[in-house]
């Protein structure tokens, strides 16, 4: 009985997540609006049109990322080798402790 509704359920959840995603994008544009002066670009005294810069496309999700503080994960990926090695070691130690506990 339940199995018959599983495809509908999954499709509905998928649609809801997309709707929430779109809603978040709209809300975050209100919270972190792109300032007008950020859209103007001058190169050698010439004003370049926004559409030729593709800035909106590249920063398509920037407002949402700022609002949800997702850029924290990016900051964690600083490119610093020492922090990467520490992350690997920390992951290894935690995993071993967990295995000792559950083995």
């Amino acid at each position: 009985m339940i199995a018959e509704f599983v495809p509908l359920l999954i499709a509905s959840v998928f649609a809801i997540i997309i709707a929430v995603f779109a809603l978040l994008m709209l809300i975050s544009k209100k919270i972190h609006p792109t300032k007008k002066d950020q859209r103007k670009t001058f190169a050698c005294g010439e004003e370049i049109e926004e559409k030729n810069l593709n800035i909106p496309a590249e920063s398509l999700y920037n407002n949402m990322i700022k609002t949800l503080r997702l850029d924290v994960i990016r900051r964690w990926h600083s490119g610093n080798l020492a922090s990467y090695i520490i992350t690997i070691m920390l992951g290894m130690v935690l995993m071993i402790i967990y295995f000792i506990y559950v083995w």
């Binding site: 990926h77 990467y84 992350t87 690997i88 920390l90 992951g91 290894m92 995993m95 071993i96 295995f99 000792i100 083995w103």
Partner: peptide
Amino acid sequence: LPIIFGLLLTGFGFKAALVPFHAWKP
């Protein structure tokens, strides 16, 4: 055994690029 398995999972997890051993890949 748990230590051996943890070491192996870290080493192969690195090759598989499993978080938190993924930073090399990009």
